[in-house]
Design a protein around this nucleic acid. Structure first.
Length: 432
RNA sequence: GGAGAGGUGCAAGAGCGGUUGAAUUGGCUUGUCUCGAAAACAAGUGUGCCUUUACGGGUACCGAGGGUUCGAAUCCCUCCCUCUCCA
């Protein structure tokens, strides 16, 4: 949620930036509602003051009939005003929640994701002396992927992963977890990329995979609900990314400045209904209803926020480089960064089987947009608590990560060479 | 799932329906003392919103949401969470 004070002070700017992100907001209506609720709130507080005054003056004596009558009168006026204000308040919050976070100044303005800017390309598309296969072909031939039986059991966009593909997945998890919880690795990334951030390691976390409506909404990740799985008869949803359950972890807490940044590496199975993607990416395991993911989440001071974002991207790149996967980095434009984002980066891996770059990672910087509703704050010295800044980023998606490995490391025989860094986690095997 | 006991400030822990935003103790901060520290003593120590140049003032918050009452941390209802026992 955006700061209402900021909107009051900069109505035109907010309208303009919201439009750039493709969000329709009616700032004049919002501000009118804001003014209305303020007037009523003043009246309500005055009535409450009078009520408290009378109650306080009575102490232990019995009130007279006149005092009771006066009190009743006050109560009635108050409840009318309060009911009236509740309606306005609800409308106001509805409007306020629709206002997206303001994009940072250097976010390119664009109307669709096609206007994302490729800021960097690392490595060249892998060269083969044979026609590279799609990962689905390789995985199915190896018996690693069984979607037919998964469809029988759970429907489309599900899969049984089996055999060496599963081992590969666990190897990747181990590898990434080792790196991100290693201070030396982080220091190295920081130095190489000239980032100003601490080398505090990420704490591995296995989070709950379900989240309450209230917190999901506060994270601003519940919408569109069509893409979420709701648990029947419970006030719970299956999370769509570990970010959702990690970012909300410290809601309603005031953290000590010395604790920040708090960095988590969450491993979680993520669930998405993929509404509106019928027929898209049906081959293989590129787009599934359920996929495992290693996700970074950082809660930091406002001052640290932007550097945390840069660090997260640098880590993503370093991991891709270590895995030897060609990739490119996209600076997402205003239309694509997402509602709570101030800025966002995508990383796309080269997939020879699709002869294209495809999204594997995202890094989101939300400034205080999420923490305002979560009320996750930090106390710095004597000053009033401030809202923390939140960052998240994919450490490695499991299915798209393995897909990139399978396709880039495939051999003419249909085997897959194991990237060197993963071999220690695969019992020293060099190919599968 | 059933029966019971609970959820109060940084922590422990009081709180006959009415000067209780909340006793007390501890913690923490500051001051006195000291060469310094400890001890002792004194004062201070929540958050949101509205208002104020400022000092301050108002209001709300005792798990969450409703209700009863002139008046609710205290009574009632629903839900969430913790503990004990049973299944």
């Amino acid at each position: 949620m955006l700061d209402i004070q900021f909107i009051r002070d900069n109505p035109d700017l907010v309208a303009e930036k919201s439009a750039q992100k493709g969000y329709e907001v009616d700032i004049p209506v919002l501000l009118q509602l804001d003014a209305d609720r303020k007037t009523r709130l003043t009246q309500i507080e005055e009535l409450r003051r009078r009520r408290n005054e009378q109650a306080g003056s009575l102490k232990n004596q019995r009130p007279t009939d006149m005092q009771i009558a006066a009190g009743k009168q006050l109560k009635e006026e108050l409840s009318l005003l309060e009911a009236d204000n509740a309606i306005i308040e609800e409308k106001f919050m509805g409007q306020l929640k629709r206002v997206p976070n303001m994009p940072a100044v250097d976010v390119p303005i664009g109307a669709t994701e096609d206007e994302n800017v490729v800021s960097k390309t690392v490595g060249a598309p892998t060269v083969f002396d044979f026609k590279p296969k799609h990962h689905a072909q390789i995985a199915e031939a190896k018996g690693w992927l069984d979607k037919d039986r998964a469809a029988k059991v759970a429907g489309s966009r599900f899969a049984y992963l089996k055999g060496d593909l599963v081992k590969l997945q666990f190897a990747i998890i181990q590898f990434v977890m080792d790196k991100l919880s290693d201070e030396t690795f982080l220091q190295d990334v920081i130095t190489k990329n000239n980032v100003t951030a601490s080398s505090k390691p990420f704490i591995p976390v296995l989070p709950p995979l379900m989240i309450r409506t209230e917190l999901y909404d506060a994270m601003d990740r519940l919408e569109p609900r069509d893409d979420r799985y709701k648990i029947e008869d419970e006030d719970l949803w299956l999370q769509g990314s570990a970010e959702h359950v990690l970012g909300s972890m410290h809601a309603n807490e005031i953290l000590a400045e010395s604790e920040l940044p708090i960095r988590y590496l969450g491993y979680a199975t993520s669930f998405r209904r993929e509404a509106g993607t019928y027929g898209k990416d049906m081959e293989g395991m590129f787009r599934m209803h359920q996929f495992d993911k290693l996700e970074m989440e950082s809660l930091s001071t406002p001052e640290q926020g932007e550097q945390e974002h840069l660090l997260i991207v640098a880590i993503q790149e370093e991991i891709m480089t270590l895995l030897g996967i060609p990739y490119r980095v996209l600076t997402k434009c205003t239309a694509d960064i997402g509602k709570p984002n101030a800025q966002g980066i995508d990383i796309e891996a080269w997939l020879p089987g699709q002869n294209n770059y495809r999204e594997t990672h995202t890094a989101d910087y939300m400034t205080d947009y999420q923490s305002r509703r979560l009320q996750t704050r930090v106390r710095s010295g004597e000053a009033k608590p401030q809202l923390v800044h939140t960052n998240d980023g994919t450490a490695l998606p499991l299915s798209r990560g393995p897909i990139a490995i399978i396709e880039n490391y495939q051999t003419a025989e249909g085997d897959v060479v194991i990237p060197e860094v993963l071999r220690p986690y695969m019992g020293g095997r060099t190919r599968i």
